[in-house]
Write a protein that binds this DNA or RNA. Structure first.
Lengths: 294, 294
DNA sequence: AGCGACTATCAATATAATTTATATCATCGT
DNA sequence: ACGATGATATAAATTATATTGATAGTCGCT
């Protein structure tokens, strides 16, 4: 059996049209016909019903079932390709969401540099949700991810290294600036400056607004903490961030939340279950652990 | 890329000898050489180091990494083959450990027969541990499994339908027969008649003996409840079983355990995550649910 | 009836895998 | 040092397999 046939099959499941699949792979239409025939013979079953009456291609239960396996086979191959590329180049790709890159990574980088392995690390930036997929697809080998629940995915191994409460940040000129702690419900009338939706902050924030039954007035969304903090300082709105962000400014005040059952910002070191760590990668992970879990 | 090449590669990882792999597949040795070359070109890397000095084949890190993926790919294909076979034959294979077959399945079978789908079900007997692997490898499509902990495996979905405490059964002539409840520690000096090690009962039993710091005197092990019960009735020893076993005899007395934190016999309906249920299979599972979860 | 959108069939051709035969390389025994 | 042995590699010939190009079949639509 040839991987090509699986590729063709996979596309046919999606496109449901032999000719279009052929075009997509730059081969002629009979090629696809033959490929599917080969698979049908190999598995001794019918995978598609060519319904000429309604002019549509119907996937049989066998076809549906095979499609599931073919998917994992193809993605497994894709991951293998990427992993072996990284191995050949002697580098590893470390996924880092901006917040973690800003507030945890400097410490790590210093140690990695001391051990002369920083040069072997390529970082990949992106929101935690996006990075989780990149990790699954083999684009990244290791990632530091934020989440509001402990990460539990089939294909990933996560090791929690920190858990931070979320805080509210307001301008020093804001009425709440004299407080140390607030209930989330006290923020019903506030304007918010927040991260955009690729950040876990939003999951947590949404949980809290839903629990407190209000629709927040979000006046701006950004992807950069400093932009958000500057807006907060200008009293454009208040924000919702972890305590780990920059606190070295006197024009912004941090307030703790008094609510019970607050969501937490959980940071984890995550790898694929299928990933075999090289000695270099093991050292990197050990540095991550040693530096982050303290 | 050809699946054959992956097969050859997989064997070579295990056997570390080109000629032997060739022999195993009934092909000539250059075939293997070429197959590995193709893979090395495809992945643009070296998979094996041919160490002629020490006359051994060394797997490179890339080789190790690829091996992991090749394994899952091949097993995925194997599962696909079996599943499609079952689909074509319009049957499903239901894994049943003997205890569950005896004490839960009769009810289920009656209902399945009423719905005329019993004929489509092939049962596969075996211990819960063995059946778990059979399910993973595609030999079974659905299984009812016993366990002492909730089942949580990457590739399997489990749905608990019952949880039973374990009980002690003694002969009516036994000194403890007048009691209703005992502590497990009171059984230190007893002789035991038990199931053999392919049953989860053992896991639970061992937990209790360890917790109570004693080495049980096991005088006999069997695979059949009735054999065990007959021996207990004859006062050969006492036994440790779930309460669901046959209680319609007056020569044996059931005692509950008074211990805190007792292990439980958890019964679950288990399927593969990758398995697509046909309408027939869905009906079967619905019958299982309806009959068992009540 | 004829056209358009699909899929199947088949002989010819192109591509790829396997075999057969032989070469290379390192080791071991004498 | 020499030849035998066990292992993998190489190259040409052979065999097997995939793809193409041309064409035919089927159905709906107008």
């Amino acid at each position: 059996m040839n991987i090509n046939d699986l590729d063709y099959f996979n596309q046919l499941i999606k496109q449901k049209n032999f000719s279009k699949v052929a075009a997509a792979f730059n081969v002629t239409q009979p090629t696809i016909t033959m490929a599917i025939k080969r698979l049908e013979r190999e598995f001794n079953t019918t995978l598609f019903l060519r319904d000429r009456v309604h002019n549509e291609l119907i996937v049989t239960p066998s076809g549906e079932q095979l499609a599931v396996h073919v998917q994992t086979i193809l993605s497994e191959l894709q991951v293998a390709h990427q992993e072996l590329n990284h191995l050949a180049d002697q580098h590893m790709v470390l996924g880092l969401p901006p917040i973690i890159e800003n507030y945890y990574f400097p410490k790590v980088a210093a140690e990695l540099q001391r051990q002369e392995i920083l040069e072997n690390i390529q970082t990949l930036a992106g929101g935690s949700v996006w990075l989780r997929n990149a990790l699954r697809d083999g684009q990244a080998d290791v990632a530091l991810l934020g989440s509001t629940e402990p990460l539990a995915y089939r294909t990933l191994v996560a090791e929690e290294f920190d858990r931070q409460p979320f805080n509210i940040f307001v301008s020093a000129r804001h009425p709440l600036a004299t407080r140390k702690r607030v209930y989330f419900s006290e923020l019903k009338r506030e304007k918010f400056v927040l991260f955009n939706s690729s950040f876990v902050h939003n999951t947590a924030f949404n949980k809290l607004t839903r629990r407190n039954h209000f629709r927040p007035d979000v006046v701006f969304r950004a992807t950069d903490t400093h932009v958000i903090m500057n807006l907060v300082a200008e009293n454009v709105g208040v924000t919702f961030l972890t305590g780990i962000v920059d606190q070295h400014r006197d024009d912004v005040v941090r307030l703790e939340l008094l609510d019970d059952e607050q969501p937490a910002f959980i940071s984890s070191i995550v790898t694929r279950t299928s990933h075999v760590l090289t000695p270099m990668q093991q050292r990197v992970i050990q540095v991550l652990r040693a530096t982050l879990e303290e």
